[in-house]
Nucleic acid binder design. Structure first.
Lengths: 126, 126, 126, 126
DNA sequence: GTGGTCTAGACCACG
DNA sequence: GTGGTCTAGACCACT
């Protein structure tokens, strides 16, 4: 369910967050679906529960998941769409960085746009 | 020349690296141009010379700049284009994350593609 | 594990890099092996953690070691072999210098070749 | 006569020293031959006289050249051969480093030995 | 515990 | 003047 890269620059807990979000976006996880408990997922991934917990807390803060005491953790009914201008600017800046780096690697405008379309399609069709 | 965000999660030295690269890409800095000395830029930005030095050393490793002992630091003659498969995969993954997050914020395919095009144009036309 | 020469012109962090590489090449350090933590090695060598850190970061760039966040640093699974024409020319030039200097000290062709063979054998047999 | 690389890691004055020694070794410069004055060489190379002076001083210390006041600078009559155990150890260590790096780049014993022979031949036959 | 970043300040080699 | 190295010490994020 979650595929971790330990030597990646990206923190483990962030990898969990992102992959959970991707699963939701792709429809693998539907509103109301149960997700593994902190301990179970930690055991499965071979990491400490604290790391999973940190990821779940952030997912809950973003209202992607909901914890119901004594029952477990579930995908939220309505996934929020929040404009949040501040974050948007950050996103754009990061996007700019990625585009710049691709350009440095020899990608021209068309190849970058094609790549973006590809990634988008792949994200929703799975 | 360089505009730092101290509250950003991104390290200062990385911000310097990226903005230098952007300046090169936009043509503000041409091959052979001198860039500010470590001490001068450090003073200007209100940071330690060590931090600027770290950025410059990484830029030199990427062959964006060249340092001439006792003279100063200059934009490299030929900016390298290196495929580097490993890094490319990382870039694509990060791009996927950004696209996913934008989608979560309500951006559809067209708006994302338009945004990417916009960012690209802005990058080369300045 | 590491043997520093403080009076050498060679920076401490470079000495660490080279000796680590030698340990890997000789097989003293195998892929997956943990190497001492930054602080521990710094304490052991009587130097600042920053200096050890600099060495480790360069070793990671060269893909000799891998750092796992919050866990420690380990010998990389697959030691890369990278041609890198630019660096190769530099190496050859340095080799030329060393050969010239040995010749100036009275070494003839045979003695130099024997010396090179000796050093090579010593490097892999330990 | 001297071919400098300004962006090299190696100091300018060391490049001058080494290339002078190579010229002597190859026979381009014979004992008694005059070499350019400090000012003339500095002008020719486009560097400050201080840098050339530093190189000449070191060459004189190594008894490769001799300065005769009012007449100029000349290649020494007898090029010294000094064992100098301390330096020899340093040379061997540097040679070891170069061999290790070549090995890391995929060179095996034979290729390294062949390379050394090549460099040696090239050095004396020119 | 781990490594990563940054500061403040020092010393050095180079040109 | 330039960049490079090192120290001593602080703070942070991650596991």
């Amino acid at each position: 369910m979650i595929d971790l890269s330990y030597k990646s620059n990206q923190p483990i807990y962030e990898q969990i967050i992102e992959q959970m979000k991707l699963h939701v976006m792709k429809g693998h996880l539907q509103p109301g679906d149960a997700i593994p408990s902190v301990r179970k997922l930690a055991l499965e991934l071979g990491i400490t529960p604290g790391t999973v917990s940190k990821a779940y807390q952030e997912l809950e803060r973003q209202q992607i998941i909901e914890t119901i005491r004594g029952k477990g953790t579930f995908i939220a009914d309505k996934i929020q769409i929040k404009p949040d201008e501040g974050k948007l600017e950050e996103r754009k800046k990061r996007l700019q960085t990625e585009i710049m780096e691709l350009r440095m690697m020899g990608y021209d405008k068309n190849r970058i746009v094609e790549l973006v379309k590809e990634i988008y399609e792949e994200m929703i069709e799975c």
